[in-house]
Amino acid sequence: MKKLVSVALISLLFIMAGCSGSASGNDEYPSGNLEIVAPASPGGGWDLTARSLEKVLTDEGLVEQNINVVNKPGGGGEVGWKYLKQKDAHTLSVNSSLLLTNNLLGQSELTYEDFTPIATLATEWQALAVPADSEYETASEFMEATKNNPTDIKVGVGPGLGNDDHLSLVQAASEYGINPSDLNFLVYEGGGDVVTALLGGHVDAVTTSLSEVKDQHQAGKLRILAVSSDKPVEGIEDVPTWKQEGIDMVFPHWRGIMGPPDMTEEQIAYWDEKLGNMVETEQWQTVLDNNDWEGFYKNSEETEQFMKEQHDLYETLVKDSGLVE
């Protein structure tokens, strides 16, 4: 009987602990536990970004409050961002260009203006790659061939049209004078599948994030024709940028963080300070290195401006791609 009573007591305690978590009302921000929404399943890119943030902010003692990562996958970020929209300033969410494209493609009502920009944190670059034995030695050769006969050249992309992998080539093509809606894309389930298809010679070229193909290029299993960065990337200096190939574009595949609508200036300033310090830490540098990301920090004000520019760019790209009329 004694055991029973203690079991009951303990569970009561748990219940009480569970209920008291949401208490708030203090003026000081943050006044309670913080939440970072990963709008994806555990193990995915957004999840890992959120967890890295949590880890660095906590380990470096930048934020004293508890930070929890909450997974809200679904709808290419839609579910998680809807959830964020109805939260208070203690919840933030990881984001990327999908925030813009979901809306531009007519798949979501949410726009970037529904949220408070906090920061842009890091970027990856896009790459165009061909098999090692491909007849195309340079990006210009590839573009020329595509221009002459767009249907014959199959380009692998994944996991869906309208993402940065797809749109980066759309931009390159339209800069070169090719109508991007003529490009012949085969859409694979994920970035890995695209690389398999290329290595097996099932597609003529792929457009994907650089990290998916960098090692393969170094091992000589395939050839990267161009990267979307502003200057050649460390480790693969032999690969030219699009600019060097005469196509005027720099295409970042950025990741950032944002908050719910209507955050106060103090709250935004809090994050500007914390994240500004965080990106200077060595631990964050390691996170960037491990993921093949590049630092791309912009504070809230710069991010707001950046988002506007990006929105206009993506609006054009989505239209050019032929995905919407």
């Binding site: 555990p42 193990g43 995915g44 890119g45 999840d47 890992l48 967890r51 890295s52 994920g190 890995g192 599948d193 690389v195 398999t196 290595l199 990290s211 090692d215 393969q216 170094q218 091992a219 299993k221 390691t286 996170v287 290195d289 491990n290 993921n291 093949d292």
Partner: peptide, 27 residues
């Protein structure tokens, strides 16, 4: 051998390994 996840599980593993600074692949 190729850094390509062949299943949902290996995809998750790949993500975690990259976080830790180990990138499976041809190298």
């Amino acid at each position: 051998t190729m850094g390509i996840p062949g299943s949902g599980t290996t995809a998750v593993m790949l993500g975690a390994l990259i976080m830790l600074g180990l990138r499976p692949g041809p190298l």
